[in-house]
Computed example of a mutant assay.
Amino acid sequence: MEHRPFSIELPQRDLDDLRGRLGSTRWPNELKPRGWASGTELGFMQELTRYWLDEYDWRAVEKNLNRFSHFIAKAQGLDLHFLQEKAAGEGAVPIVLLHGWSDSFYRYAHLIERLTTGTDDGGVVFDVVVPSLPGFDFSAQPGEGQISAGFAAASIAELMASLGYERYLVHGGDWGSAVAQEIARNHPDRVMGLHLTDVPFGNMFTIDKAEASEAEVAFIDAVEAWSSKDAAYVAIQSTKPLTLSYGLSDSPVGLAAWLIEHFERLSERLPAREDLVTNVMLYWFGNTIRSSIRYYSEGMDGDWSAGDDADWDGAGDAGSTDGDGTAWDAAGAEWQQQIAVPTAFALFPKDIATPPREYAERFFTVTRFTELEHGGHFAALEVPDLLAADLRAFAAGLN
């Protein structure tokens, strides 16, 4: 497989067009300040847009991003963007870091160097690979009916093999945890360990609450309560994604408000303004909002419960397959609910909900289960030191 060097170089005309759009933003006619109760706060967005126009320097950010080694590879027949940073010296542990939605490969911008550089106590160092999932950033989007966690997993497993990594760690959160699960399910001989910040959401649909423990029921109830209040984006992105995408593809402020609301809801503290805007810029210049939310409108189909009438999106579309042709339900010959690969969970208090260990153990061979004191859904941006320490501890325990 060819790995073509890649550099981020946005045309000036695109930056000029963005500036014009930001400067001519038409604001919603909100009657009075309501904080974040009805969505991304108006005052916050007005101040962020002022910062975006007057202080944010894309060219400086672009130069900073290009300090990493970027490449484009062909995986599953499509262009796949990735970063690869190697630790100095011998004995580094290969690790692939997988992002989700509403973030991007930029989720790991503050984590990469923390993992590739040595520590005072001689802790584990890593060779780091950070792909952009298919449909995100500078990766191509799959054809109709292809996009799923399984397709992304097959692409990334192919990439890691092409890089010469016979064994490696996989870390992920959000959709990244679902992709990580599928890599481990289909390539247990390659994955030395899984490190996740959540239990992939689809696993919940395999649970009969009547047979769950008290702690598991409390967790499921907490997720359902969150869903009824804060998961409207899932319903829209899975049922009317194109209608939504007209506005988000045309308005940079609209796109920013849509993405940043997710960060506000699920972060102990919002990431820095530069981080928030840079993440939005990657969606904007790649025009990838529509392709990224295909994971919700297409990639969530299928019968996760292996029962007769339960499925993820209520469409009754049992027996869907991933990009590898492997069924996501128990009818697939290769499908196993329990992942045999050693798995660690690093759980952060501001995430959607904290699963009990017995819930995680239904699906994974859990060897480490840590509840951190700070951080949220986007921990790699919020508290990279905590995440790096937990990754090191897990990797050291595997050796």
Rank of each mutant, 00 (worst) to 15 (best):
159 L>N: 09
72 I>K: 13
84 Q>M: 08
113 E>Y: 06
300 M>W: 06
115 L>T: 03
105 F>V: 12
371 E>W: 01
225 A>G: 07
225 A>D: 14
137 D>W: 04
257 A>N: 08
85 E>V: 11
174 D>L: 09
234 V>G: 01
349 P>G: 12
277 V>P: 04
314 G>Y: 07
7 S>V: 12
43 G>S: 15
132 S>R: 01
305 S>K: 08
297 S>I: 02
293 I>C: 11
169 L>K: 09
71 F>G: 01
350 K>P: 00
347 L>M: 05
342 P>I: 05
60 A>T: 13
314 G>C: 10
388 A>S: 05
197 T>K: 03
125 V>D: 05
206 T>D: 15
336 Q>G: 03
313 D>H: 01
101 W>D: 05
194 L>V: 12
114 R>G: 04
51 Y>W: 15
192 M>D: 12
217 V>C: 04
160 M>S: 03
249 S>R: 11
214 E>C: 01
198 D>A: 10
21 R>A: 13
153 A>W: 04
302 G>T: 07
362 R>E: 06
201 F>N: 12
89 G>F: 03
119 T>Q: 09
389 A>F: 02
166 E>Y: 09
58 W>D: 09
8 I>L: 09
396 A>C: 04
353 A>E: 04
148 S>R: 06
221 D>Y: 04
122 G>E: 12
1 M>G: 13
173 G>H: 08
202 G>W: 07
352 I>Y: 14
336 Q>H: 14
209 K>M: 14
35 G>N: 08
69 S>G: 00
393 A>T: 05
283 Y>V: 02
157 A>V: 11
285 F>T: 03
94 P>H: 10
203 N>S: 09
167 R>A: 07
394 F>V: 06
100 G>L: 09
240 K>R: 13
37 A>P: 07
145 G>K: 08
15 L>G: 03
181 Q>V: 09
19 R>P: 01
126 F>P: 00
399 N>T: 09
340 A>R: 14
172 G>E: 13
117 T>E: 10
202 G>R: 14
138 F>C: 08
329 D>P: 02
289 I>F: 07
341 V>R: 13
92 A>G: 07
337 Q>A: 08
246 Y>Q: 06
302 G>D: 08
103 D>E: 15
110 H>M: 10
333 A>Y: 06
28 P>I: 07
212 A>W: 11
340 A>G: 08
27 W>D: 05
141 Q>A: 12
216 E>H: 05
